[in-house]
Amino acid sequence: MAFTDRSDLYAAVHEEGINRVVRHIMQQRPSLFNYATPFFLQNPGLLCVRIKAAPEVTAAGNPLFTVQTPLPVLAAAQPVGLNYCLQFTDLAIDFHDSDTIKLPPELGTLPAQRLALYMKGCFGLGCLPEGYYADLIPLAEAVAVSRGDKPSFGLADIPARQERDPIVPPVRELTCFCLELYAVLHFEWGFIGQDEYLKVRLDGLEIVDLKPVEMENILECYAEAVLRLGILPRLSIRIEKMVLDITRLLRQQGLQAGQQISLAPAPVPAAVPHNPAVEDDQLKAFVNLVIQP
């Protein structure tokens, strides 16, 4: 049986290949997987995990992480922010029909046409050293009792600073912890604007062995939001890229001959039962040419 019995083009990516692709993405676009406060721009060595970036990234002046505002200290009359980082350090994918990734019991057995995702995330917070409290507390107290712009108690030495410009004390060392996250996902075709893309959709996720359960749930809730709204949309792949753009010359020459050639997924289930299909440790895509004279 030929690969293209039911479509014009066929593309299959083995999970070993997709994991290499993931590694390339993590190394060439580290800012998608690393988030930290500006303090770490000068102090990347203090991050929880050293970021491995491709040389092209630094050569192009691309950031190693996405800069975040410091974590605000709640109730502090004088705004104070804490340095932190969130890093997704390991990422592996396992297509159905394999057991490379052992899903936690909460996610059950990997269903057909699904892929398992393993991700390790590390969070680090820059706790204030004791000495900083001795400096900051008098300021906090003074601000707490002040009224509007009138100085109180003659404390004219309170620094004049913007209300929303927090004090961010530097850190010497982050306190880090790492969690392992498992997720079940699937692929689907869909449009973004006028173009057809292969999109990754989240079916469920689980952070392992975190107590209490409510805290686990909250973190899972947040991780789901990060994945669904942050990371996964940025990993959508155009349909042409799925077939390594092998039809580029065909499309160019078609244009010269007055033909508009584009690509579309083979219809399900009329042509193929699943498209894209996740089976045999592979992601398979069945694609047809659409020719408009």
Binding site: Y10, A11, G17
Partner: peptide, 13 residues
């Protein structure tokens, strides 16, 4: 096994 497999039908070829 190869990481990527692409097939082009005879008609497309």
């Amino acid at each position: 096994m190869a990481h990527l497999t692409l097939a082009v039908s005879e008609a497309t070829f």
